[in-house]
Design a binder for these strands. Structure first.
Length: 271
DNA sequence: ATGGGCACCTGGCTGC
DNA sequence: TGCAGCCAGGTGCCCA
C-alpha cells in the first residue's frame, strides 16, 4: 500500500516513540512473508536496543546495537505501536515486544511485506543494493532523470516507478507527478526533452514532499503509527478519478493500464 | 540489457 | 443473498 511518503510518515511517527527502547522478543506467527522468517532471529534480536529508525526507498530500517531489522510494508502492511496484552487479530503476523509493556505489531493481509534481520550492513543486502537514488536527496542532479531516460523505450510512467532508476514512486504518485508535469504517461521515456525530464523530476520531488507534509495518502488501510489517517487523498488530481472532471480543464479523467497497473491521466492537459 | 508478463496473497466491491 | 470475477498503494523472477 505505501509509497515513499507513507513509509516516511510512519518512520517519523515511530522515531520518537521507539528510539532507545529495548526489544524483549520477536514473535512471528506466520512462516513467511515475501521471504521466510527465521526462528533464530529472535535469539539475535532479543535484548537489543533500537538506536535509530531509518528509511531507504520504501524500506524501514531499525538500527539495533548489533544489526538491523529491515521492514517492507508491501501493499497492505500496517505497523502500529500498541500496549501489551491486546490479543492479536487476523493477519497480525509479527510482534516486536518492547520494554515498558508495549508492542510494535505488524499486520499484513496480503503478505507481500518483508522482514529481515541482518547483522551485516543492510545496504549491502541484494534487495537494497540495487536501489536507485532517493528522489528527495538534495544532492541528486536536477537532470538525473533526463540521463536515466536516454535510450529507454518503456513508458515514462513505468520508468519512474522502476526502483532501480528512482526509489519511492509508486502507482499513485506516478500518475500524480505526470499530471503535474503535463506529460502523457504512455510516452516512451526516451522521447522526453531535457526540459520535460527536469520538470518531471521537480514535480516528483514536490509531490512526494507535499504528501509527506500531509501525512501520506490514506486510501484503504494506511494509518500512521498512531492510527490516524493521512490527508493527501484530498489533494489527488487524477488517481482514482476516472470519469470525473479534470480540476484543470474540466475534461474527463481517463484510466488505462500500463505495466499491469491502473494509470490515470487527463488527455487534454498531458502530452 | 531491456521490457513484458506473471507470481506471490487476501479482501472488498461490482454486477449478474 | 450468493457468488464469480475483478481490482487493489509492491516487487522479484523468468523469458523472449
Amino acid at each position: 500500500m505505501p509509497e515513499l511518503p507513507e513509509v516516511e510518515t510512519l518512520r517519523r511517527g515511530l522515531e520518537p516513540l521507539v528510539i532507545g527502547r529495548r526489544i524483549e522478543e520477536l514473535i512471528c506467527r506466520v512462516p513467511k512473508l515475501r521471504q521466510p522468517l527465521e526462528p533464530a532471529w529472535n535469539a539475535g534480536v532479543a535484548g537489543q536496543k533500537i538506536l535509530a529508525v531509518g528509511r531507504r526507498a520504501k524500506y524501514l530500517l531499525f538500527e539495533l546495537e548489533r544489526g538491523s531489522l529491515v521492514l517492507h510494508l508491501g501493499m497492505s502492511g500496517v505497523l502500529r505501536l500498541l500496549n501489551a496484552g491486546i490479543e492479536p487479530q487476523k493477519h497480525d503476523h509479527i510482534d516486536l515486544r518492547l520494554d515498558q509493556n508495549q508492542v510494535l505489531r505488524f499486520n499484513d493481509s496480503r503478505r507481500f511485506g518483508l522482514l529481515l534481520y541482518l547483522e551485516t550492513n543492510p545496504f549491502d543486502h541484494p534487495l537494497l543494493k540495487k536501489l536507485g537514488p532517493e528522489p528527495l536527496d538534495f544532492l541528486l542532479p536536477c537532470d538525473y532523470l533526463f540521463t536515466a531516460t536516454r535510450h529507454r523505450r518503456v513508458a515514462i510512467k513505468n520508468l519512474i516507478m522502476n526502483q532501480q532508476i528512482l526509489v519511492g514512486v509508486g502507482n499513485i504518485y506516478a500518475s500524480e507527478a505526470l499530471f503535474a508535469a503535463s506529460i502523457d504517461p504512455r510516452r516512451p521515456a526516451e522521447s522526453l526533452t531535457k526540459n520535460e525530464a527536469i520538470h518531471l523530476l521537480a514535480q516528483i520531488q514536490k509531490i512526494l514532499q507535499q504528501a509527506i507534509e500531509a501525512g501520506g495518502t490514506t486510501l484503504k488501510d494506511f494509518r500512521h503509527s498512531d492510527g490516524k489517517p493521512g490527508y493527501f487523498r484530498q489533494q489527488l488530481q487524477v488517481y482514482g478519478r476516472r470519469g470525473e472532471k479534470c480540476r484543470c480543464c474540466g475534461q474527463k479523467i481517463q484510466q488505462l493500464v500500463l505495466g499491469q497497473r491502473s494509470t490515470y491521466f487527463c488527455s487534454r492537459c498531458q502530452h
